[in-house]
Simulated scan of single mutants.
Amino acid sequence: MKGAPARRVIRLFPEYGRDWPLWENSTPTWDVGYTTTPEMYGLSDDLTRHIAEWNALWNANFDPFDGWKDDAARERWREEGVAIAGRLAAEVADFADVSYEPWPLLSPDE
């Protein structure tokens, strides 16, 4: 695509009402929208499935008002997120960097 940035940045974080925790900031010369999908990046079926499971884990165990259901779910989600960020970075290494932004892991005071 003409005008595409030399290195794109794929942001990885969950958000309410979204099927995929993948985002990318558009620029005037690179309009990809804001929300993205695994298909847009040509991700493997295995990583796509892993991302879907990670997002489902968050939806089932994190409440915007009450936080995490328990520490075990929070830790599992944290571990899976780190693994996914690494796998995602490897799969898109030819054209993009990954910014892993796990905001649900922050304490309310941060």
Rank of each mutant, 00 (worst) to 15 (best):
I10Y: 01
M40E: 10
H50T: 13
V92Y: 00
E91P: 01
T27S: 13
A52C: 05
V82K: 13
R49H: 14
V98L: 03
L22I: 06
W68Q: 09
K2N: 13
G67L: 11
N59G: 04
A73I: 07
V98Y: 01
R76L: 11
V92W: 00
W23M: 04
P38W: 05
G86M: 08
A4L: 09
L47H: 02
T29I: 02
T37F: 03
M40G: 14
D19F: 03
R87L: 14
T27N: 04
F62L: 01
M40L: 14
E53Q: 15
L47C: 03
A85W: 04
Y41V: 02
E24R: 14
A93L: 08
A83L: 12
T27Q: 07
A89L: 13
E80V: 11
P38D: 10
E80K: 13
V98H: 00
Y100L: 08
G33I: 11
G86S: 07
G42I: 04
A93I: 13
D71H: 10
F95V: 08
V32H: 08
Y16F: 08
T36P: 02
Y100T: 07
E15F: 06
P28S: 10
D94Q: 05
V82T: 10
E101G: 00
D66K: 15
E79K: 11
I51W: 09
G86W: 09
M1V: 13
E24V: 11
E24L: 10
D45S: 15
D109G: 04
A85L: 04
G33T: 05
L105N: 05
P5A: 08
W54V: 06
I51M: 13
S26E: 06
S44V: 04
D70T: 04
E39G: 08
F65W: 07
D46A: 15
N61M: 02
T29P: 00
W23R: 03
E101Q: 07
P104S: 06
E75C: 12
R7H: 09
G17P: 05
V9E: 08
W58A: 07
N55V: 03
F65S: 14
W68F: 07
E75I: 14
P5F: 02
E79M: 09
I84S: 09
N25H: 15
P38S: 07
V92D: 00
L12K: 04
G3F: 03
W103E: 15
W54P: 02
D97S: 12
P28F: 12
E24Y: 02
D31F: 11
D46I: 12
P104C: 12
W30L: 02
T48C: 15
D31C: 10
P64S: 01
I10S: 00
S99I: 00
P108H: 05
D46Y: 06
P14L: 13
S107K: 14
T27D: 03
E79I: 06
G81V: 01
P104E: 11
D46E: 14
D94N: 03
D71Y: 06
A4K: 14
D63H: 13
T27H: 04
